[in-house]
Design a protein around this nucleic acid. Structure first.
Lengths: 114, 114
DNA sequence: GCACCATATCATTCCCCGCTGATATGTCGT
DNA sequence: ACGACATATCAGCGGGGAATGATATGGTGC
C-alpha cells in the first residue's frame, strides 16, 4: 500500500527527471530551438547547429524515441518537426524563469555549464 | 559580428541547458516537489524524500545557488521554499507534456532513467 | 560551557552520457 | 546498375556529476 504510493510517486519523479534530461543538453536544445521555426532536414540542422552529422542524427533518434520530434520522409530528405506545441511552451517557460534566475544559474558551479 | 550573434545564441542555449539540468535529477525534483506544498526544513525534506541528509544539503546548496529556492533561518532550523511561482508553472507544464509523450520517454533507452 | 540537534562541507568512488570516426543503409538521378 | 548525396548506426573514449561516509560548523537549552 505504502509502497504503491511510493512507487507511484517515484515513478512520476523519474519520468519528469528523464524528460528534463531530454532538454538538459545544449545540442538537443539547439536542435529543438532550430525546429521551433519550422521543420528542417538533417543536413539543414547540421548547418545551423554546427554539430557533426552523426551527432545530430544521434540526438534526433533520442528526441524521436522520446516523442519530442516527429519525422516525415520527403524525397531523399527526412524532415523533422516539433511534435507538440507544449514543447514550445516549456521552452518559453524556461526563458521566463531565466529572466529571474539567470544570474544565479550562471554562478552555480555545482555542475558545469558545458 | 557573426561571432557575437553566435556567442549570444550559444550563451542562451547553454543557460537553458544548465537550468534544465537543475531539474534533470530525481533528487532535486523530489525536493522541489515537496517544497511546492509549502516551506520545509532540511530534516523534514530528508524524511519526505528518503534521501540522506548530506545528499539533501548538497542539492539544496545547488538549488540555492541557482536561485530556485530561498532559505530563512527559523531558530535552529533553516526553512527552504520555492523562490518563484514560475517554477511551479514549469513543473506543471512538464506534466502536461508528459501526458503526451510519457510512453515514448519511458521507451527511450538512449539515456537511462535513474 | 556542555551535550544535543540541525545543517553544511569535503573527498572518493562509480556510472552515465555525449562526442567522434568509421561505416552501413537508403534514395535519387542518369 | 552506378555514383552521389542524405541519413543512420556503432564502438570506444573521456569527462562530469551524483551518492556516500566522515567530519565540521552552528544554534539551542540546561
Amino acid at each position: 500500500m505504502v509502497q504503491i504510493v511510493d512507487d507511484r510517486k517515484s515513478a512520476t519523479i523519474e519520468r519528469r527527471a528523464k524528460l528534463f534530461r531530454g532538454f538538459a543538453d545544449p545540442s538537443r536544445l539547439a536542435i529543438l530551438g532550430a525546429l521551433c521555426n519550422g521543420p528542417l532536414a538533417v543536413h539543414e540542422l547540421v548547418e545551423r547547429t554546427e554539430l557533426s552529422q552523426p551527432n545530430v542524427s544521434n540526438h534526433l533518434r533520442c528526441l524521436l524515441d522520446c516523442g519530442l520530434v516527429a519525422s516525415d520522409r520527403d524525397g531523399r530528405f527526412i524532415r523533422y518537426r516539433i511534435s507538440s506545441p507544449r514543447i514550445t511552451v516549456l521552452l518559453s517557460d524556461v526563458d521566463a524563469l531565466l529572466d529571474v534566475v539567470a544570474e544565479g544559474v550562471e554562478a552555480c558551479d555545482n555542475y558545469r555549464g558545458a
